[in-house]
Amino acid sequence: MADSRLTSPPILHRPTEGRPEPRMELPELNIQADAGLPPTADEVVVFQATGVNVHYGKFLALKDVDLAIHRNEITALIGPSGCGKSTFLRCLNRMNDLIPGAEVGGTITFHGEDMYAPDVDPVDLRRRIGMVFQKPNPFPKSIRENLSFGMKVNGIRVDDDRIEQVLRHAALWDEVKDKLDQDAYALSGGQQQRLCIARAIAVNPEVILMDEPCSALDPISTLAIEDLMRTLREEYTIVIVTHNMQQAARVSDRTAFFTVQQLDGGDRHGILAEYNATERVFRAPEDPRTQDYITGRFG
C-alpha cells in the first residue's frame, strides 16, 4: 500500500488534441466508500467563511471566498503559487493579525461565532486552533521543553505521562524516548516536523492547521506525516495547504481549489474556484480551471 503511494503516476499529462483524455490514473484515495458525495446538512461545520476578502495593504490577495470546514475531516487547500491558499489558512487562526497591513473582510465563524468580532481574543483563539508550519520550526530548546512551552502557556500541567502520551500520539515516542532532554535540532527534519505536530496537539486544540507541512521533507517522512494525519483525523479537524496534489488526493476528505484571477488592469488576486469532496474534485472537477490544474496543464 505504501508502495502504490510512492509510485503513483506522474501528474503531468498533456493530452495531444481536442478534449482532454480521461484524466490521469489517481493514486489510491483515503476516503470512505461513500465519500465523493456533496457535503450533507447534518455534518458539524467548524469554520464557515462567507465573502472573505484579504488585503495586504492595497493589494487584494484573496477575493470573496465562501467555504465550510467540517469537523473530523481533513480539508485540503490546493492551487498554484500566489492563489491565496496559505493566506486563507492563516485567517483561520488569525495569524494574519501579526502581519502589518493585513486586513480580513467578510466573515469567518468558528462554531457559529464570528472569529473577527472585536471582543474575540486572538490569543485564546490560537490556543484552540493549532498550527504546523511549512518549515519545521522547533524552539531552540530540548524536546521536552518544546512540548512543555505551549502546555505551560495554556495552564496544562506538565508531567512525564502527558509528554509520553503526546509523543506517542505524534508517532515520535519510540524515536525520542531516550533523548527527551536533548536539543530538538538534533532530530531529523521529519522528526522535527512530527515534534511540531506533537507541540501543537500537546495543548489540546480542536483544529490543526497545516501549512505545507511536508514541503521540506523527504518522501519517507512525508508518508509518516500523512499516516499521522489519518490517525489525528479521528480527534481533530485538520486543514492542510499543500502544493502536492497527490498528497491532497491521498489524505483529504474535501479539497478546495484556489486559483489566480488575472484582471485586465493587470491586477491579480486569489479566488476559490472549486470546493467539493476530494474524489469529486479529482475525478470529475466541475470547473475547467481545476481540470487544467490537476491534469498539469498549468500551475
Binding site: M95, L98, R126, M131, N137, V153, C196, R199
Partner: peptide, 10 residues
C-alpha cells in the same frame, strides 16, 4: 520561531 509560539496561543 515567533509564529510557532503565537500559534500555540502565546
Amino acid at each position: 520561531m515567533r509564529e510557532g509560539a503565537y500559534g500555540l496561543g502565546a
